[in-house]
Write a protein that binds this DNA or RNA. Structure first.
Lengths: 183, 183
DNA sequence: ACATTAGTGGAGGGGTGCCTCCGGTTCGCA
DNA sequence: TGCGAACCGGAGGCACCCCTCCACTAATGT
């Protein structure tokens, strides 16, 4: 994994750190970006002071939560690499969808200029872009679209609301068929 | 217009009402749904009491802001009605895009069960669905997609973030080409 | 012109959140 | 076992927000 979060050394401190991270993940998913920091500390069973020592700013907390997800995406990309081009790409996108679904609020709140963000993005590109280019090379995907276009398309559609899962899949299908080259 | 907001009668009161509405639109666009009500009153140059008299709850404010947009959409639908099917549909979607772009936060915060929301949705369908069906009848749009699918597709893509407007248009174009029947 | 009454605005009480600071506790090494 | 350094937690000061209430103001009809 290309990016990581610095953990504290002492055993008790590391326990608190993990508890805070888990609590933050939960709170952000539940209440969005503005979740109360005091509430997060409460969930973690830790004093507010401890939260601030580990994560001086709200951004720090976002980043820590975010980084965890990226390596997961990279792993999936490896797993799918030996399937046929289009299938591999969509399989990876499935993972991407579920990732965007829960982390949307956090992603939007990230400071896009930060070094950490840049390196996460790079990791994600290294994972997904080869799949995309392979599909293009195989003549399955239109060549006037870029990998970044696809990512935004999928993440935009994923964070919309739908009547049910069937509709979400249908809409995603429509959009992806626009990406595909018609033989 | 099928829906409307009840205005106060007295001239000064109506002035305040309009000022509050404008201030709310601004504040919601700027700070999202949680914009401070006191700030909105301040922007409108009005006491907080006046705000509460006109809009007893935050929801009331959302609804009032929302309703304004819908009639605009209905009007545009009429204007484009005499163009060729596909062109008319995309022209209307253009308006829809700019509407979703600024009102997303408000739309998400609306209570979807409310009578007002239902009637707004009906108004919007009456405006846009005929355009959609005409395009389907003309064999321009795939028949396994519904108007609701299209709305969600477009609003999802619109509320995503892009590098620049060109990318947004490109991505929208890709998705819409998936909707279109290939001749 | 003036009475009537709709309309005004902001003080105030109750809440919650942010962040700092520091006396007390616990870990881990020797 | 003992000690220093690392770490803890929450009280407290400040800021902001929500919403109610009511003494005051001014638009309107006659």
């Amino acid at each position: 994994m290309a990016v990581a979060v610095r953990r504290p050394q002492r055993a008790d401190a590391r326990r608190n750190f993990e508890a805070l991270l888990a609590a933050a993940r939960e709170a952000f998913a539940e209440n969005g970006t503005e979740a109360s920091l005091e509430d997060i500390a409460r969930r973690a069973g830790v004093g507010i002071g401890t939260l601030y020592r580990n994560f001086p700013t709200r951004q720090d907390l976002f980043e820590a939560v975010y980084v965890e997800e990226i390596s997961q995406l990279a792993r999936v990309a490896e797993e799918v690499a030996d399937r046929p081009p289009w299938e591999a790409l969509t399989a990876w996108l499935d993972q991407f969808v579920s990732y965007v679904g829960t982390k949307r609020a956090v992603i939007e709140a990230l400071n896009r200029e930060s070094e950490m963000f840049r390196s996460c993005r790079a990791t994600m590109y290294e994972a997904g872009e080869p799949l995309f280019q392979r599909a293009q090379a195989a003549g399955e995907v239109r060549t006037d679209a870029g990998f970044d276009d696809l990512l935004r398309l999928v993440s935009g559609l994923t964070s919309a609301t739908y009547v049910d899962d069937a509709q979400r899949d249908r809409v995603l299908g429509i959009a992806l068929s626009g990406l595909r080259v018609t033989h």
